[in-house]
Write a protein that binds this DNA or RNA. Structure first.
Length: 520
RNA sequence: UCCCCGGUAGCUCAGCUGGUAGAGCAGGCGGCUGUUAACCGCCUUGUCGCAGGUUCGAGUCCUGCCCGGGGAGCCA
């Protein structure tokens, strides 16, 4: 965050000296030494012919996913990837090669006829990068449709000693300490493919519904809704920053001439977009400097926030329902193999839960009614149920799992526990807010119709001890062509968690940031 | 931030009421096999998180700190 960006160095707590025991040769050094560069990839011209091993980078190449999707066996094939395991027999070696294009790897079969058999294949170890050429044939073995009978195997990048990933189950906790290698595991690889598919499904949905993708700012001067601690962005010197008359740090001297932060929400800006373009959505990084250490929180996460003009709470709930159904349906369809893996190995209910959201109509229950239902449920809840109190996770889950048995939208919450920008209902006591509850996790989406009436919004801002001056442009939107509008927000990682059944949110983002952790 | 649990070989862990460490996997060597978490035999590997303390003696007990996990709060 500081401008000088001095290199901090590697702390003592750094996990398992992955680089500690050997110098890292540069790409250039490797090239000089005649070693083909796996990472070179500047294009065909540079790598063509330079590889002593005969590898042509940048040439057309079929992923394992495509190879496995071939209509039938027969024909030449090239596999490029990383070795998961190797099994050596007397006159035969079996290499499980994976390239991340799909969960399955391809079994490469090598024998003494294979070029590179003695010098390369017999010395292969888990983790090395290789290229194998040969013919794709029907596999006589169990567990795979095709295999590659190799005519040649070339070592592209050796794995050296101490490669931490083994052909056995590792704890997610351990994998987090090697986040630079964990995408090579089945589970994290599957997570990242599902994550990718989900992101694309989200864009598809909104584009289909004529929402514009709006890029809201990362750096902001406004503390959107008082939503927790924010990260400060500054270029002032760490030591001896400029001071004002009162001795406080003088942010007039700072880069933006005022205190600035990383965004905690793009909602207020999304409203600007909605009141011009009718329907917009944001999908970007969001930051919270809360010291929360749980399986459901990150300091840096991705949030999705649609906002639409001429939309009321009922319309918003309908949008949220279409959204979840569409995204889940797409992911199940596009990630069949990965989802089957999660169901089998990670969370047996993963697909069932998604199906429930896709197939069942969502129930709508006003908060007031939800409280009444909970009160007469006879359940011994740990936390109290009373009008004016927020619903706890146990309440949410009982409502959706036990009482209704399908997703529930709880609407019209007490104003006292909701944010200033929510539309004040006629009863003066509640606001047009909603929470979408689903089985297994509870709240997955929160949103509201926004207060579009200037006087009421100003009054609420003051009542909550906020300064209307700070919201001048937000209030301007209510002065000039204000219309009813509504939007919701959801954490991207939370729905990836829901879909995959992964227990810890740190395992559904490639590079998790949590208090005390920003390695990688 | 609070509560609970944990930090022992590269990884996953065992080590009871204190007597200076062990298994499986990985790795090395050999064997065997169209194998697929392959199998069989032999072998190597530890500042027992860090710093103090109690004790003849501490992985084991005590204190502090660091780190991780689970739960809570906050939330997405």
């Amino acid at each position: 965050m500081w401008p000088g960006n001095q290199w901090i160095g590697i702390r003592g707590s750094r996990p398992r000296g992955v680089f500690a025991n050997r110098a890292r040769p540069t790409i250039a050094a490797l090239r000089d030494a005649g070693v083909p560069s796996a990472a070179g990839g500047r294009g065909v011209s540079e790598s063509k012919g330079t590889s002593g091993a005969g590898i042509e980078h940048g040439s057309e190449h079929e992923s394992i996913k495509r190879l496995l999707a071939r209509e039938g066996a027969g024909g030449e094939a090239v596999v490029r990837g990383w070795l998961r395991t190797v099994r050596h027999g007397k006159g035969v070696s079996f290499l499980d090669v994976s390239d991340g294009s799909c969960l399955a790897g391809l079994q490469v079969v090598a024998n003494p006829e294979t070029e590179g058999f003695e010098p390369v294949v017999r010395g292969l170890a888990t983790g090395c990068a290789l290229e194998a050429r040969g013919s794709l044939v029907d596999s006589p073995g169990q567990g795979q449709r095709y295999e590659l009978h190799a005519t040649s195997v070339v070592l592209v990048g050796d794995a050296g000693e101490g490669y931490p990933l083994q052909k056995k189950r590792h704890s997610f906790e351990f994998l987090r300490t090697i986040a630079h290698l964990r995408p090579r595991t089945n589970t994290i690889g599957a997570v990242l493919r599902v994550r990718n598919a989900a992101a694309m499904a989200i864009h598809d949905f909104f584009q289909r519904e004529e929402f514009l993708y709006l890029h809201t700012p990362i750096v902001t001067a406004s503390d959107a809704e008082g939503a927790g601690e924010m990260f400060r962005v500054t270029t002032l010197p760490e030591l001896d920053p400029p001071r004002d008359e009162s001795g406080a740090v003088d942010y007039r001297e700072d880069f933006f001439g005022r205190p600035t932060f990383l965004t905690v929400s793009g909602q207020l800006e999304a409203e600007i977009g909605a009141l011009a373009l009718s329907r917009v959505y944001t999908f970007g990084p969001t930051f919270r400097a809360e010291n929360s250490n749980t399986a459901r929180h990150l300091a840096e996460f991705w949030m999705i926030e649609p906002e639409a003009a001429f939309l009321d709470l009922a319309g918003l709930a309908a949008l949220a329902e279409r959204f979840l159904k569409s995204v889940f349906r797409d992911v199940l369809e596009r990630c069949e193999e990965d989802m089957a893996f999660f169901e089998k190995r990670v969370e047996s209910q993963a697909i069932v839960r998604m199906r429930k959201v896709i197939d069942e109509p969502f129930e709508r229950i006003p908060y007031r009614e939800a409280i009444a239902i909970l009160e007469r449920s006879g359940e011994a809840f740990e936390f109290p149920v009373r009008f004016g109190l927020d619903l706890q996770s146990e309440h949410e889950r009982w409502l959706t799992e036990q009482h209704v048995g399908r997703p529930v939208v709880v609407t019209d919450w007490p104003a006292s526990i909701k944010a200033f920008y929510m539309y004040r209902n006629d009863d003066e006591e509640t606001v047009a807010a909603m929470d979408v509850l689903v089985g297994g996790v509870g709240e997955i989406i929160g949103g509201s119709q926004r207060e579009h009436r200037l006087e009421i919004l100003e009054r609420t801002i003051r009542a909550q001890g906020l300064d209307p001056e700070h919201y001048w442009w937000y209030l301007d939107l209510r002065r000039y062509g204000s219309v009813p509008h509504a939007g919701f927000g959801l954490g991207f990682e939370r729905i990836v968690q829901f879909m995959t059944g992964m227990a810890n949110i740190r395992d559904v983002i490639p590079f998790p940031r949590t208090p005390g952790q920003a390695e990688f």
